[in-house]
Structures are given as structure tokens and as C-alpha cells.
Design a protein around this nucleic acid. Sequence first.
RNA 1: GCCCCGAUAGCUCAGCUGGAUAGAGCAACUGACUUCUAAUCAGUAGGUCGCAGGUUCGAAUCCUGCUCGGGGUGCCA
Length: 651
Amino acid sequence: MNALSEIKYRFGQVLKEMVEDASDLLEMIRPAQDSKFGDYQANCAMPMKNLVGKSPRQIADEIISKLQIDDLCQSVEVAGPGFINLTLDDNWLKAKLTDSLQDPRLGIKPVQTPGTYVVDFSSPNVAKPMHVGHIRSTLIGDALSRTLRFVGHEVVTDNHLGDWGTQFGMIIYGYKHFVDKEAYANNSVEELGRLYKLVRQIMDYHTAVAKLPALHEQLTQQQNLLLELEANQPTGDKAIDKKLKKDIGRLKSKITEQEEQIAELESKIETIDRNQDQHARALKHKNIGTDVLNETAKLHSDDTENLALWNEFLPFCREDIKQIYDQLNIEFDYELGESFYHSRLAGVVDSLNEKGLSRESEGAICVFMDNYETPMIIRKKDGAFLYATTDLATIQYRVEKWQPTAILYVVDHRQHQHFEKLFDAARLWGHDDVEMTHVSFGTVLGDDGRPFKTRSGDTVGLQGLLDEAVQRAAQLSGELNSAMNEETLTEISKVVGIGGLKYADLSQNRSSDYKFSYEKMLALKGNTSTYLQYSYARVQGILRKGDVDIETLRSQPVAFRFEKEIERKLAVNLIRFGETLDEVLVDYKPNLLTTYLFDLAQTFSVFFENCPVLKSEDDHLKRSRLQLCDLTARTIEVGLSLLGIDVVEKM
RNA sequence: GCCCCGAUAGCUCAGCUGGAUAGAGCAACUGACUUCUAAUCAGUAGGUCGCAGGUUCGAAUCCUGCUCGGGGUGCCA
């Protein structure tokens, strides 16, 4: 039991005598905001004023008089309007640290009631290159899975691949028309990638050519409309004038958007026109758009040839994305993509129909629900199924197979409404005893605050980003460690570069939008994983230099001593690791862990400056400090590992 | 139109679901490497928490209205 939950428990014993339901009040016990208030503070006395009818300070006094907490806290005081400030007992703290020192799990007990968590994350479309848009789901999902597992839950990670969509129609079409047999034999993954891009280009070209005139016309209309609106004189009626101003503003931004879109399409056309071969090829494949859809449709209706091609391509596509996952050191227990559920979709619709939950409307099969204006469509009027159908089938399968306590969907916030509907529908369907949570996160934006694109209108490829991260780390490592051998430097660069990238993402509150910047993603100083890795490496440096036998240090501990204030502060920080993990899992927020670790490392840095370990006044103090060092390093190591980030011994 | 999300230091963002004097990092400025790793540390400067009301002992946090931005909104995922 960690300090916070122990304190809450003790307060609970008292509060249950005073109020009916103490649970909200217990949530008001938290780490002290300022160390001058002690280590923890209870803010529950103030709101109890109305429940109990005494002054908050009287209530606080009453709580304290009944509280049995002497073994845990050396001081409990009322302050200000009725805060209860708690300071942990040094002996308790030391005993706790000693436990952690001897425990590979750092004193963190597995949860008492383990659940089964299915974590659905990453889920890229295979056969398309992965880009920055995939990074958040992948990293957040991985970090949450690792954390859930560490605290003792059963975790099933499942990569719900997009492996059944139009992109396969595209590469099937590409393969049938453009394949370079030799290249395909030599490097299938690369050739398939080339085919995808090629078909994409030609399709975009034709779409652009077809859409452009209409867009131009629309633009002209909008510009004319703008002139008209701007010609209006103020009427003097505030409401009308305001609306006019608003309309003009909207129209202007719409026009800008339109102009950008036109520019983008024109550049796509130009790319093809510039190259004679490409141009000729594009002209030859005028109907590529519908043809690709046909190839997709044939695949979905089990056409033998296309199905065979799909079966042939899929392993290559998986190999392709696996390369990225390997670099990120991410693994999945399952990769049950959309195709896996293909055969179950009709059954889903039948089942919903039978239960009277869905019905036909305008030719489509829809689930209508209270609270929603629009229905969830599970079968289109042309008979095809949608992702809602697949998602329902997936829920059904997961519940049958794993009987999970919770299914977590790590997916960006734009799909929020979809998941709300999905979960409601699933509950109506009978899956009402499983927690279903949309762990949503913000969009990756560019400098302009719009969804991120490069100047050419493409997204930033993930592979390029990883390479750049490792390369920047390599450069800095080389500068700082000229004496190190090549192999070590390569290892460090990988760990530091990839770690930095992951940390940059995970340290951000997942719900806010994400403004992409190379500087931020690849930063190697300040609040970064590098800082934590550096702290770890510094400890290892001390242990090396002091020729410390780590096994003895851990198995034969000496009593901890807090000679300076900072040592105690470090100690308090160390024992908070467990409660931090609890916090992370309340709302599935990995950034609470990065904040904790950064804080711990900062505290360690102060300790490092002020407490020479190897030159301590006496041997006992030296041992005590070495123990603090070891605990710090291990907490950082384990904490980072839960974020999917590695450490190195030297850097 | 309707529905969601957001607006905090020059920049990028935290802020633990209502607590005590609003915090980091970057950028800027001043200092610290013959010392256990300077990928670091100590310090300075930087704020009308979008605006206006309200709720109460107490509001960046909750409510209402407004402004601005993003997203979603019946057959894409």
C-alpha cells in the first residue's frame, strides 16, 4: 500500500463516522502543493462545513483528534481555513525505502483485483506508409498497456489493422498494370510501396482534373458573394451588423481554404504533367478511380484472383509496418485486422435486426438511438458494411474470447461521436458489463494550427522522423563523447533519439491537440527523456567509480539517513512512484508519469549537486546515499520502461 | 443550424476534476566545469489564466452569455 492510499484509508476510518459517503472527501487528500505544507494535504474539512454544521477548523480538529496515524505521520496540523497538513514520519519513510530497495518491483504491490484489459491501439492502414498521425495512438497505447501490465492486470494488446480497405484495390490494380516483376521478386515490400504511391498519384491526378473546374467556379461565386456582402452598409441594427461581419469573416476563411485546396490540386496535376511518361500513363488509365473500386469490390466478394493477391501481399505489408514497430520496440499480442471480422459482419446485422435494434431506412440498415439525431449505419444501401459494423463485430469477438473488464480504444478525438454511438449500441446489444473507453487524443497539427502537412501537402513519414531523431542524437553524442567507440555511440543514439521522440509525445496531455515541430520532438535537453536517461547514467557513473557491489547494496541495506533536506525530499519523491501509477490509470494519462519522473530527476540533480556521495563524511552516510542513488536510477529505469523508453549505462 | 473540444509567460505546454503566492521546458539575460558525467546546476526577467457576469470561505478549474480557433454532424475510416 502506498502512502497516499494508506492515508486515505486512515481518514476513511474517521470520516465514515461523520458523513454518509466519504469517497469524494477522500479524493481531496493529495500530495502537498508546497513542501512547506508537509508531504500531503487533506482539503476535506472545508466542504464538510455544510454537512456537519461546524466551522472547518473545528471539523479539522475533530478529524485529527480521532485520526490514528502516528506510525505514518510525524506531524498533522491544521492550517489556514481548515487544511490538514501531513508530514510523513521519517522512520516510516525509511522503512518503506528499505522495502523498495530489496524489491525488484520497487515495493509496488500488484493490484488486489486484477482485470483483463483489451487495448486497441496503433491500427494503421497497412500498405500505406505510416506517418506522424499514427504516432500518438501507437505510443500512448503501448505506454498504457505496459503500465496496466506492470500494476498487475491481464493485458491483451490488439492492433486492429486496416487490412481490408481500398488501398488493397489500389495495389491490386497497380500490380496488375504496373508491376516490375524483377523488383517485386527482389524486394516485394518496396515494390508494393512504389505501386501504392504510383496508383495514388494517378488517382489524385484524375480527381484533381475532374474537380478543379468546379472548384474554380465555386471560388468565383464565393468571391462575388464576398463583394456583395462587403458592399452592404451598416444598418445600425447591432444584431444584423454583427451577423454580417461574422458571415464575411467566415466567407473569407472559406475562400482561403478553397484557394489552398486549389493550389494543392494544381500541384498534384503539375507533378504528373511535368513528366512525359507519367503523363502518358495517367492518360492511359483514365478510369483508374472506378477500376480501383471494382478491384476492391471484387476482393470483398471473394474473387479468387484478388483474394489470392491479397493473401500474397498481406505478409509483405505486415513486414513493412513491423520494421517500424521493431525500431520502436513495440509488440502486439494480436493483430486482428478488419479482414478478420469480414465473415462475421452479416451476422452482426442479423442479430441487431432480430433484437429489433436496427431497421431499414432510406435503403440502409440503421441503429437509431435516443440521444442521437443521426443513426448509426451498419449496412449501406448497396449492401456493403461499414466500420461501425466491423467495430461491433470486434466487440462481440473480444467479449467472447477474453471476457475483458475493459476495452480501451486509443484513437484520435475526431472519432469521439462514433465511439459514443458504438458503445451505446454495443450496450443495447447486450455487452453492458464491460467498460468501453475511448482513450482519445488530439490531432497532430502544423505550425498554422491546422492538421499537419508538409509544404508539398504530404504528411511526414514516420520512418523519416525516426531516422532524423536517431541522427540528431548521434551528432550530439559524438560531440560530447569523442572518446567513445562507434558501437556504443550507435546504441546510445538509438536509445536517446527514439526515447526523445516517444517522450515528447507522451509528456503531453493526450487530450490536447499536438503541434508538430521537429525541434520539440527531437529536443535533447530540458524536459526530455534525455534528461531522465542522463540522471540514470550519472548514477551508474557513481556506482562504477565507487566500485559498488550492487547486490550487496540491495540485500544488506543500512538504515537510511537524511543528513540534508534534499535527501528527505528525494526519499519522499521515490515513494510516490506507486501512487503516480495509480493516477496514470485513473484517466489513462501517461503524461502524469513523465511529470513525476521529470520531477524525480530534477530532485536528484539537486541532490547530486549538494550531496557528494562517494565523498560523504562517513561510510554509513555514503551507503545511505548510494541506496538513494540506486533507488532513483531504478525508479527512472522502470518508469521509463513503462513508457517504452530504454536507458543506457553511459552517455 | 446543431453537437463536441480548446483559448494559461515571447514560443510549446503542465496545472492532479474547487484549494494556500498560477508552474515547467524552450528562447533571453547573469553566474558555476582541476570536483561522483555541464545532455547539468544556481539565479534574473517574463501573466488581465480569451472577454463579461454568476455560484462561495476560496474559481485557471463549476454555471450562463459572448469572441476567436479546431473538429464532428445519414451511407469514408
